[in-house]
């Protein structure tokens, strides 16, 4: 177990973070090169003011007509995404591991809070799954990859929850937690999870077009 633990927390973690950050950087640079080569006009339409205006409305729950049109989805998706980002980054166990490796850490959440946030993420994933199956307009555009991606995102939270509560097979669950977290990190730049990076950019461009050229709101 020492060998496995050493491997997943050592080299595998390095690989995961390198692929995650490197991958995001690669996607960003690749995008900018593509814009420059093929659609350089995009740069000339980008406006900081209108980008932020648009992003601000859309990152505000109920800040847009469409958010108000789907109140349950809005609450779930905001709760899901906030917890998804906050819980792992501010989890005490993660901060401790980071501090042990690098000599500095950051303030972390009480475990109880992180525990609830994890449950929210899992519940959100279940909601998305059910929504995918139940809503015809979502099911029509759903492919296997959508379920796989949802599982990839949910896995670290499910395994983390089980490991934290030491429900069963603690050691293996922790290893599964670490590995599934790494899989998720690596998946982000190379799958549709890349919306983490691209969504603000597409929003910014549409916001710039609507604000600067079309003099209309896009929310």
């Amino acid at each position: 177990m020492h060998a496995i633990y050493g491997w997943v927390t050592g080299p595998l973690t390095w690989i995961a973070f390198l692929l995650f950050f490197g991958g995001l950087l690669y996607r960003l640079v690749q995008l900018l090169i593509l814009v420059r080569r093929k659609e350089p006009f995009i740069f000339s339409y980008m406006s900081l003011k209108y980008s932020l205006r648009s992003i601000l409305h859309w990152i505000l729950p109920f800040g847009t007509v469409n958010w108000r049109l789907h109140p349950v989805m809005t609450i779930v998706t905001f709760a899901f995404h906030i917890c998804l980002l906050v819980a792992p980054v501010f989890l005490m166990a993660h901060a401790i591991l980071f501090e042990e490796a690098w000599g500095f850490g950051w303030p972390s959440l009480p475990d109880v809070a992180a525990d609830w946030m994890t449950l929210i993420v899992i519940a959100g994933a279940v909601f998305f799954l059910v929504r995918r199956i139940v809503r015809p307009e979502v099911r029509f555009v759903t492919s296997t990859s959508d379920y796989v991606l949802l599982a990839v995102v949910a896995a670290p939270f499910v395994t983390g929850f089980i490991a934290y509560h030491q429900l069963f097979a603690y050691r293996w669950m922790l290893v599964a937690h670490i590995v599934s977290g790494q899989v998720m990190l690596v998946a982000i730049p190379f799958t549709r999870l890349v919306h983490m990076l691209f969504a603000p950019l597409t929003r910014a461009y549409t916001g710039s077009e609507f604000g600067g050229v079309r003099h209309a709101v896009d929310w």
Binding site: H2, A3, G6, A93, E100, Y170, R171, L174
Partner: peptide, 15 residues
């Protein structure tokens, strides 16, 4: 840290 260096003894949080 001792356990890690000796590769013996518990190292995971819940251990």
């Amino acid at each position: 840290q001792c356990h890690l260096e000796l590769e013996n003894g518990p190292v995971m949080c819940g251990e």
